[in-house]
Computed example of a mutant assay.
Amino acid sequence: MPNIVRIENGCLAVDVSTLGAEAQAISTRDGAQWLWNGDAAFWTGRSPVLFPIVGRAPDDTLLIDGKPHPMAQHGFARRSDFTLATATGTMCRHELAASDAMRAAYPFEFLLAIEHRLEGHALTVSAEVANRGAADMPFGIGFHPAFVWPLPRAAGRPHTVRLDNEGEPARRPLRQGLLAPETEPSPFLEGRLLLDPGLFVADALIFPEGAGHGLTYAAEGGPALHFRFENLPNLALWTKPGAPFLCVEPWHGMAAEEGGPRELRDRPFTTMLSPGASARFAFTVTFPTSGETP
Rank of each mutant, 00 (worst) to 15 (best):
V5Y: 00
R6I: 10
I7V: 04
I7A: 06
I7E: 02
C11Q: 14
C11Y: 14
L12D: 04
A21M: 08
A21E: 10
E22C: 11
A23Q: 10
I26F: 11
S27H: 11
S27I: 05
R29S: 14
R29L: 13
Q33K: 08
L35C: 06
W36R: 00
G38F: 06
G38D: 01
W43I: 01
T44Y: 15
T44N: 12
G45L: 05
P48H: 04
P52R: 01
T61M: 12
L62M: 09
L63T: 00
I64N: 05
I64F: 03
K67Y: 15
H74F: 05
A77V: 08
A77P: 15
R79F: 15
A87N: 02
C92I: 06
C92L: 07
C92F: 04
H94R: 07
H94Q: 14
E95A: 13
E95C: 14
L96E: 06
L111Y: 09
L112V: 15
E115D: 13
R117K: 13
G120S: 09
A122D: 06
V125E: 15
S126R: 15
V129K: 06
A130D: 10
A134C: 15
A134E: 12
D136Y: 15
A146L: 06
F147L: 05
P152N: 11
P158T: 02
R162A: 08
N165L: 13
P169M: 13
A170V: 09
R172L: 10
P173C: 03
R175D: 09
P181F: 02
T183S: 13
P185M: 03
P187C: 00
L189M: 14
G191I: 09
P197K: 11
P197Y: 14
A204M: 12
I206E: 07
E209T: 13
G210S: 13
G210H: 12
Y217N: 01
Y217Q: 07
P223R: 15
A224P: 01
A224K: 08
A224C: 08
L225M: 07
N234F: 03
L235F: 10
L235K: 01
K240L: 14
K240S: 01
W251R: 02
G253C: 03
G253N: 05
M254T: 01
E257I: 05
L264H: 05
L264K: 02
D266W: 00
D266N: 01
F269E: 08
T270C: 02
T271D: 10
M272Q: 09
S274D: 15
R280A: 09
F281M: 05
A282H: 04
V285Q: 04
T289K: 12
S290T: 09
S290C: 13
